[in-house]
């Protein structure tokens, strides 16, 4: 059973959801980019999930009402895409890839390590609502296996049990790991180079 532990619901889960004025403005701006309102279903579900931590049926209803679309449509879309959380999850959702290249490179060992460390099985949330552990299908980081994604955001690559422990400590202390710019291997030498992958 997943514990309610999303960003703003840890203690008092709200019974109703609403978008802020800024979010409604953002949604209006999104609508202008497409010829039909329905096209913003996915982007608005993202706004909702980033804001409420999940898109349970109540949130789906809010999205439908905001966009003047049938609830059944929004529900159908939310159910189709794996990244939308249809129920509240832990504060941090750990998606460990165990697909092809990660499967060959120790992804399953990372899952077992996390299960032991967190005292839960894959698909479960810790009692304190901090972590949900999930197995993910290919996340497109095959060369940097094994890896995991943290709450639909940053990728952490080249995982070892020690690195996993560090990441957990970091998340518990309230910070998130930085974006890892993978150095590009050069074909003409044994060196690698950073070509400035970050924006700033």
């Amino acid at each position: 059973m997943a514990k309610k532990g999303s960003k703003n619901t840890a203690t008092n889960p709200p019974t109703s959801y609403s978008f802020t004025k800024e979010q409604l403005k953002e949604i209006e701006a999104l609508k202008a980019k497409y010829p039909e309102v329905q096209a913003v279903t996915l982007p608005v579900l993202w706004i909702a999930q980033d804001s409420f931590g999940h898109v349970n049926p109540d949130v789906q209803a809010l999205v439908a009402k905001t966009l003047d679309l049938p609830e059944s449509h929004v529900h159908g879309v939310a159910e189709f895409y794996t990244q939308y959380f249809k129920e509240p999850k832990g504060k941090h959702v750990l998606d460990v890839c165990t697909c092809l290249s990660c499967g060959l490179s120790g992804g399953v060992d990372i899952v077992r390590h996390l299960e032991k460390k967190l005292g839960i099985n894959v698909g479960e949330t810790t009692a304190d609502g901090q972590f949900t552990l999930q197995e993910a299908e290919c996340l497109g980081a095959c060369g940097y296996a094994p890896m995991m994604q943290i709450t639909n955001d940053v990728y952490v690559n080249h995982l070892t049990p020690e690195k996993v422990d560090k990441v957990l400590d970091q998340l518990i202390s309230g910070s998130t790991p930085d974006f890892e710019s993978i150095a590009m291997p050069l074909v003409d030498s044994t060196h690698t180079t950073k070509r400035g992958g970050s924006n700033e």
């Binding site: 996915l42 939308y84 290919c138």
Partner: peptide, 24 residues
Amino acid sequence: HSGAGAYICGEETSLLESLEGKRG
């Protein structure tokens, strides 16, 4: 336009459905 986790949306007509805000 961001997807939301569905391999099938790399299929070109599924991608169009997804862009239109539907199941892929």
